[in-house]
Design a protein around this nucleic acid. Structure first.
Length: 198
DNA sequence: GAAAAGATTACCT
DNA sequence: GGTAATCTTTTCC
């Protein structure tokens, strides 16, 4: 097929279409913002889990909080691969997933609306990965080509987006690199009203 | 009854 | 493991 290097991306991809390389090969903050409302599909052994992303964080170049900040290592190698690459890292007992944008930059997927609410609560990076069944083995997967792990663009305007500081980041707190759908119950951080049980 | 503080639990760049 | 959010208890008016 005619393979060409598309460098220019539309501001809005076709609704429900798979997100290709051009989508991710843009400014990380824009990707993070437009990822809201998009669907992340993960197929594992016949079962397919889907979440509609509602919360993301951008990690950019020169960012002390970014894993790529201190250079390439065996762990963060995926961050130096092509846009659309899945970067999965392990922290203590859970794993978190990022989508590589431009080189050395990525978007951390923090929360989504679950396709099977009963079986999980994809609110928070660790929980999201656990719900989707993502493992450390999935690190390095090219989501623009994989048939197991891929994304679909949002079908419509997801609504108002709230922007604020990232979660769990000690440095560069003043940067507003966290994006979330306002008034969405699945957003992890600013829990509107946790009801005390018992 | 409401608010503040301490302590516990859960989570994760 | 450290940190932040949550829950419980206590104090105050």
């Amino acid at each position: 097929m005619g393979r060409r290097s598309a460098t220019v991306a539309r501001s809005s991809d076709p609704p429900g279409r798979r997100l290709g390389r051009a989508f991710f090969d843009r400014a990380t903050t824009r990707v993070a913002r437009e990822l809201l409302g998009a669907e992340l599909h993960v197929r594992t052994r016949g079962t397919e889990r889907v979440v509609r992303l509602v919360e993301t964080e951008a990690y950019v170049r020169g960012d002390p909080a970014s894993h790529a900040y201190r250079g390439e290592t065996a762990r963060n190698r995926s961050m130096f691969l092509a846009p659309g690459t899945l970067y999965v890292y392990r922290i203590h007992q859970v794993v978190c997933a990022n989508l590589v944008t431009r080189r050395r930059e990525a978007v951390l997927v923090r929360a989504g609306v679950p396709s099977v609410p009963k079986e999980g609560n994809p609110s928070g990076p660790g929980r999201l990965c656990r719900f989707l069944g993502l493992r450390l083995d999935d690190d390095g997967t090219d989501t623009t080509r994989s048939s197991r792990i891929f994304l679909r663009g949002r079908a419509a305007d997801p609504g108002p987006v709230s922007v604020g500081p990232r979660v769990g980041v000690g440095r560069a707190v003043d940067r507003r690199l966290r994006f979330a759908l306002a008034n969405d119950p699945w957003v992890s951080r600013p829990r509107p009203g946790a009801r005390g049980r018992r």
